[in-house]
Design a protein around this nucleic acid. Sequence first.
DNA 1: AACAATGTTCAGTC
DNA 2: GGACTGAACATTGT
Length: 279
Amino acid sequence: MPELPEVENARQVVEKALDRTISGVDDTDEYVCRPHHPGEIDQALKGGRLVAAHRRGKTMWCDTVTADGDEGPHLGIHLGMGGRIFVTGPTGDASSLYAGGDPHVGGMPKKPGERPDKPEWDRVTITFDDGGALRLFDKRRLGRVHLEPAVEALGPDAAEITRDEFRARVGKGIVAIKAKLLDQSVLAGVGNLLADETLWQAKLRPSRPAGELSTDELDDLRRVLRRATRAAIAQGGVHTGEVIPYRKKDATCPRCGAPMERGVVGGRTTWWCSAEQSD
DNA sequence: AACAATGTTCAGTC
DNA sequence: GGACTGAACATTGT
């Protein structure tokens, strides 16, 4: 499910939908499109175009222009726990399909490149006058599409944050370091898996109070985080992390062989090495 | 059947 | 107001 790396992948797919005239938006799912009412997003975008696709952390948004060429509203897209993006080209058929997000959550695996045959999981569809479309496909329905997302509420992107920003934002307070990494207003883009992977690589106990970390530990943590994030983008998702396959019962640490331990930190299921991450 | 799931938000308490 | 906690949200898979 989508964390920063999967969302970056999805953003690149959204770019396939740029500069194509919007003929309509199916925004009838009032939960996914909250707080809008059906028809509002359709009304705001119809006749216009998406002209740029941005991302900060796990939030994507598109700049738009209206039919007259004026600046239009920003369209926010969030994949939630299991959303994916599918874009079809002008022919609208499967041969022109681009898929974005985490392939692991797509529903039924089909022939390579084909989209799962679950039209009821299309939560929002933007149709273009060339016959193609962009859809948010999300079986869990926790994804979101709405106008003017509050991007300012997010901290710096986890792949871009500077050393000084990281020290100042992450290295304070009494909350567990893992909870800090997961706080999107502190730092945007880290999800449960990337947090476990990063802390394992840095050999830090997830429950350690964030303010307790030394400057050296914070600097190292940031280096590890950026490396793990970029590696996940390059390799196609957070599930390619080294410790991810060992987040399960009776597993042992792939580095030292000690038992992996499970608990709840920051409200999320957490796995760590009982030997190397115990300080 | 009960529980967990890679996310966000909101009510409530210091 | 900020820091923090825990439950709720909608749905599927085990």
